[in-house]
């Protein structure tokens, strides 16, 4: 991070207009304490970052006279995260900016939608159950083998005078 990039900061966050950006004039908000991904960010800090990001959408309209804005969070490497810290990007948009942020929607079957709702609803419960299963399996595997125990006993008896 270049100090020249900073446009405003406080005890919790730093707001940058970086020279390396998606579009000229893009704003990036980063927390002063480093968190790698969104899931690690303290709740109150995340709330502040979202509220500031939203206000900055209005600031971009006012300052740069852009025609639209995007809020983009690239959470994780496969989402395109390049900074070693969670951040929120606010992107000014213009009709001739040539930027394509989009996707092609694929039709989802009713069955797959139903299955995915269940999956999302139950993932926490399923994760706990899987962890418990794994724990039980590890406990069983750490117990001595019955044959070994017998053999041990037999061996012990053989040692008796």
């Amino acid at each position: 991070m270049n100090k020249d990039d900073i446009i405003v900061d406080d005890e919790d966050i730093t707001v940058l207009c970086p020279s390396e950006a998606i579009v000229k004039g893009m704003i990036t908000i980063i927390p002063n304490k480093k968190y790698l991904i969104m899931e690690e960010v303290d709740d109150n800090l995340l709330i502040k970052m979202f509220q500031v990001a939203n206000k900055l959408c209005g600031s971009l309209f006012e300052a740069l006279k852009c025609e639209g804005t995007n809020i983009l969070i690239q959470n994780g490497v496969s989402a395109g995260q390049t900074l070693p810290s969670f951040s929120i990007n606010i992107i000014p948009r213009y009709s001739n900016d040539g930027l394509d942020l989009s996707w092609v929607g694929k039709n989802a079957s009713p069955q797959s939608l139903e299955e995915n709702v269940e999956l999302i609803h139950n993932i926490d419960k399923r994760e706990k159950e899987e962890a418990l299963e794994l724990q039980k399996k590890e406990e069983l595997e750490s117990l001595p083998d019955e044959e070994e125990a017998d053999d041990y006993l037999t061996k012990s008896m053989k040692r008796l005078p």
Partner: peptide, 25 residues
């Protein structure tokens, strides 16, 4: 929800996207 998606679909990231205005999508 992002945390649930990471676990449920075994992916390594999530994107959050919001568009204000037609030019923004």
């Amino acid at each position: 929800l992002s945390n649930k998606l990471l676990k449920a679909f075994k992916v390594q990231g999530t994107s959050l996207f919001l568009a204000n205005g037609g030019v923004a999508g």
